[in-house]
Design a protein around this nucleic acid. Sequence first.
DNA 1: TATTGTTATACTCTATAACTATA
DNA 2: TATAGTTATAGAGTATAACAATA
Lengths: 154, 154
Amino acid sequence: MAPTEGTDATLRGFCGYAMKRAFLGVQADLNRVLAAYGLRMMTFSALVVIVDNPGLRQAQLSDALAVERPNMVALVAELVKAGLITRNPAPDDRRAQALEPTDRGRALCAEAIAAVETHEAQLTRDLDETELRALMRALALVERAATEEETRNA
Amino acid sequence: MAPTEGTDATLRGFCGYAMKRAFLGVQADLNRVLAAYGLRMMTFSALVVIVDNPGLRQAQLSDALAVERPNMVALVAELVKAGLITRNPAPDDRRAQALEPTDRGRALCAEAIAAVETHEAQLTRDLDETELRALMRALALVERAATEEETRNA
DNA sequence: TATTGTTATACTCTATAACTATA
DNA sequence: TATAGTTATAGAGTATAACAATA
């Protein structure tokens, strides 16, 4: 029996499980690609946000990545140890840590982004442009709807 | 800063992270819906497969759900304890355990499927039929491509 | 020799409470 | 008092090795 045969072929309440299977496959692949750069999905995502928003604080990074602040500590420490970012007290608020990419961090980030783009182009090679746009829009809409429902039930 | 603003708005290698965010939101919502039936995403998925394939063995269920066999033990035990399935030695192979839904398991499964369908219709309410089909097809294609790449790199 | 189910174990990711130092 | 970062900790989910019973 194929993994999902007879279960999520129709929309019998299996959108969630289809997403899980697809996501786990993509994540595993992505981590294989990123391992060549000493990165994982989360460290890569954090690095990209820091490169795009130099000087941001850990709390902002936590919000951007939907990671709880306690779990951010090790993530940031890992990037600092790898020499990809620096973490210094913010000049206007000595409680906060301002995160800046290093030159090496910027360079590695650019390389990793290129590799990931190549990889994802491969993953989505059988989708035409309309389907690709539909996928991205659908993911954003589904996430928004899920977040709204979460807020409503909180 | 919005969670994903400036990061996955374009396809700059963030399909994977967009999927993660969408999946985590959907899973959290799904688990909230299923909690009313004493189920979680994985126990629900397992129950549906067992109801659709009465008599199947744990190893087959493991394959169907992409769960390692050791992790299947607790999952099956949970469903047995809840009185939703039975687990008996298979008549033709005394090593194997044949899984059958109970009447209560069948009834609860039907109720839970209805609730999940309602819930997912809500999550995808802003997608038209074309986009919904594109989403499901895209997830299947992406999963297949990821699995192929995994096989190739193994 | 191979396979089913099982135990034990470990590793990752995630979530919460409580502390400190600043504000 | 409230917030930023931290520590410690606990809970899922997932992965592998090794074992007994059976094929």
